[in-house]
Amino acid sequence: MDIFPEGAPQESGARLVREAMAEAAEGAPPLPDLVPVALAEGRRRRTRARAAIGGTAAGVVVLGVLGATLPSWGTGTGTGGGAAQVGASAVPSMGHGTPSPTLTTPATGFPPPPSFTEPPRKPVHVEPTTGESSMADLPAAERARQEEFQQKAAVVLDELLPAAFGTVRPVDLAVSRYQGGSGGRVFPVVFSVRPTGDEPGSPTQEPCWYGPEKTYRCEKAALPGGITARTVTAVGSSKGGKSIVGVSVRFTFKDSTVVLSADGDDSAVVSAPVTVDQLLHVARDQRFLRLVRYAEAFPMEPGRESVHGG
């Protein structure tokens, strides 16, 4: 039975809204000609898309050639052994072999990389929106460094997050972006270590903002080293009476703000398959904290900025 018929009782309301919308739209501030900028942006998008396709094809060829010429490379630990060695050599080393240029300067505080026993994870491509930069815009050396970090972070997150999260892969939009997924579901992850910048006070020392209890919960939690973290569980959106819940952990490490968050799949109307406690378990793990130490000592993200809402 249709419990929401669009009949006469709604007509006056619909007319009212239509009239108000027409008035608002007509009164919108003048629009400059967007076509030239859109053309330039569209060309950039085409170029990026072609480069991404070309890069993938080249990667497949390189892996294919290496696979063909070096069939017994590596320790031969199962099917993944050879591929893992190829992967390790394909990604510039963070601590062994040929160091990447930006990492060679100060050796102090240089954390050893987490064990790398898996092939590189193919990054998820996300097209940047207008005004948004992507890792493709970085200088080659810095991009390689960030990609390497992402690979290692993806492995650590994969190991520490619940199995329901699926395989964690880097997202090529920013060093802080990752994505888990299984069974056709996609769970966005943010792992960000961002210099606090010149702004006074630490963002994670601010008191919790208390929203509606049903949709927002903020709590404090202790991490190793006397660090106090702030956890947030929030309903992102709702569909058909089902809420999509995301969780995050934030804390200050030296001069940086660290954020680890997991979001639900909006399309599938599924919450992030991880609780705040499980996310705290990740944040307390030494493998994760090693990544934090590295990213704090050798920052990869710009200083803290506020985000416009609306």
């Binding site: 929106t129 960000s192 929030a234 959106s237 995050s248 979001d263 809402g309």
Partner: peptide, 18 residues
């Protein structure tokens, strides 16, 4: 874009007034 903003909110939870 709205979904992306929500993720940013979850990540950095500093949202300026609209």
């Amino acid at each position: 874009e709205r979904r992306r903003r929500l993720r940013d909110f979850l990540a950095h939870s500093h949202v300026d007034a609209p």
